[in-house]
Design a protein around this nucleic acid. Sequence first.
DNA 1: GAGGTTTGTAAAGAAGGTTTACAAAAACTT
DNA 2: AAGTTTTTGTAAACCTTCTTTACAAACCTC
Lengths: 393, 393
Amino acid sequence: MRTLQQHGPCSRADMTRRLGVTAPTVSKAVSSLLRGRMLEEFDSKQDGVGRPARQLRLATETAQVIGLVIDAQNCHLVSAGLDGQLHHANLCIFETPKTYRGLISKVVKFYEQVSNGRAVETLGLGISMPGLIDYRQQQGLLSPNVPITNGQSLARDLTAKLDIGCVMLQESHSLCLAQHHYGDTAGGNSRGLDNFVMLDIGAGLGMGVMAGGRVLTGHSGLAGELGHLPRIPDGRACGCGKRGCLETVSCDSALAWLVSQRIGKSVSIDEIFQLTQSGELSVQDEIRQVLPHLSFAISAVISLYNPSKIFICGRMFDLDEKLFEKLLAATAADTLAPAFADCEIIRASVSKSQGAVAGIIEYLTDSLVPGVDGLFAPANNSIDVATAAAENR
Amino acid sequence: MRTLQQHGPCSRADMTRRLGVTAPTVSKAVSSLLRGRMLEEFDSKQDGVGRPARQLRLATETAQVIGLVIDAQNCHLVSAGLDGQLHHANLCIFETPKTYRGLISKVVKFYEQVSNGRAVETLGLGISMPGLIDYRQQQGLLSPNVPITNGQSLARDLTAKLDIGCVMLQESHSLCLAQHHYGDTAGGNSRGLDNFVMLDIGAGLGMGVMAGGRVLTGHSGLAGELGHLPRIPDGRACGCGKRGCLETVSCDSALAWLVSQRIGKSVSIDEIFQLTQSGELSVQDEIRQVLPHLSFAISAVISLYNPSKIFICGRMFDLDEKLFEKLLAATAADTLAPAFADCEIIRASVSKSQGAVAGIIEYLTDSLVPGVDGLFAPANNSIDVATAAAENR
DNA sequence: GAGGTTTGTAAAGAAGGTTTACAAAAACTT
DNA sequence: AAGTTTTTGTAAACCTTCTTTACAAACCTC
């Protein structure tokens, strides 16, 4: 599975060469994965001498997974192949319900729709949601934007309702997994990268850290809460209940807030983009205010995690084409030289939907290997595939 | 090995119960470890019915390791059993030489002395040193206090000279491993703990992070450089070349510097301790200055790593018995509530010597298990024990 | 000293890998 | 067109490692 994820489709013989295990072993493993609908064979015209190879790829025709993204306003539900390719035709968007029970029933309804839309087996559901998530309990802790999930275990409840493997991921962690999975295709060349950071500077400062090939979770999944470092003494109130958190002064929303204050009406970052494009508004002042705080955030990330790459998601950079360069320069001046030199800073280009899908794929892949200590270490190997693997002789 | 490290001496039968592997398997593994001098048997009077068990423990009579601590002024070399117990009688202290070659020859000389002092096999050497260390290259990068190691690979050079396994660890990482190994005995109950942070606020802010059971290294071993977060714009010059780094205002040395400025002569933290004890000096003002910065540091650690415990090493707390409590209170007010609630903050009580020893023991233990991805993942399994294990039938 | 209990090891069995051997499917050669 | 070469994928036998089973050793209790 990992080989196919990292290098794309190949034949059993290719795998033998790549993995350093022998052909019969590959053959047996592949046959049980085929039986478990995790892989599929396909023919491709190829030239060259010798018997033509039967190509293998992650299942896309014979199985699917579903990704669910929960956001403040809307929820997205979309199916995808095990290679992670989203089926855009199968996308459902619905307004985030006002109650937890409403959320469950909406998800169940649209799940049926998406699941039955294609006549293939659905292997699992990945959930990306904002706020703090306790991974040990698999439940939401504190989500200022989607409070209905607080104290609830969406993954467990949906597993019960849908009779399918479900996992819950903090949205930044999901972006991190997305970058890990979709790396090359998304332009960042991060596939298989082991130490990188995904920074989401949209509505708050969200961060996912990939450290040593695993998503850094900390003791209860709260690691990486960069946005709530104290920054401005007695500053603006933050959603977390404190004042002057770093994210109140260094993200897209913070910029939008500053602009809103000045022009006297509430505008979103998207509206600001429109206005600056049409020349009706200049936000250089506000950008100048935000820049040092953002630079501090990145400096902290580099010093504390020593990543080889940082991927940044944010609309802010669309407002001023030189902003990204300015940010790099400001960060360079403020950061420990060897760690900065080690780190490439790049704009990200993955979506939360990809993240949710990557999450469930990671979960399914991990659960094939008992004892592996990935993100989902104590996976209950009760899914279909594992039994198929056991049946293998 | 891990079982003995975590639970102390036990018999083969105890291990069978603890590990969930069968008696013959334990028996075979143990016999090869005995042959490799990693374990030893000892008799202990025990009551109870049945055949008395032969107790096993990590080798202390039959083998030893050596720990080397390099500091600005002095170097310490000490032997220890594989259980990590230091042989204090075998301690050598020498002044840190002015050249790298001088360092090598001094170490070699004292190594011979310590190694031959006891007529047992020496299995490896662990090195704890300050500054930045590139783990991929196994070489020193930048060490303001011991510049002679910059660009040098002490571990490789000593491995060649001494014909023995050597590993190099950043001193904070070594403290982290020490806490992991010595946990219970040192009072912190951290043995086997998987997510904790070791914060050394002595000469600078050193940090070691244990995340998911592994020391967090980042891409090149530079992760955890908390001390060089930018804190005071255009502040005091830091050893790293920048200005106003967090460690210039929040560690024992920073406190000592502030006091030195006021009283007009250079005093160390130890001297300050003497003076405050005798009542000649009060440093409440300086403590008040340092406190918020230190509280920020801890707040950052909690938000970013979500540890279950933080161990702090520092003399500062000896100056004011209420300081530790004040620090906790200040940190609580500034930190994301669930992450703070999750985290216990404790004063540490391990030494760098223990860290160096824990480092080499960890290395030896890791290298027994091919494919394990611990701190020393790509261990070359060329040590004696591994071959002994292979010979086992 | 007989019987019970616990410990540790030897021998046979099962599981998962490897090596070896071979059939299948294509291109190349004569 | 038939044989040869090359590469692919699988079946069978073997090897290693762990397990199950059986049993000897060492101590306590009665």
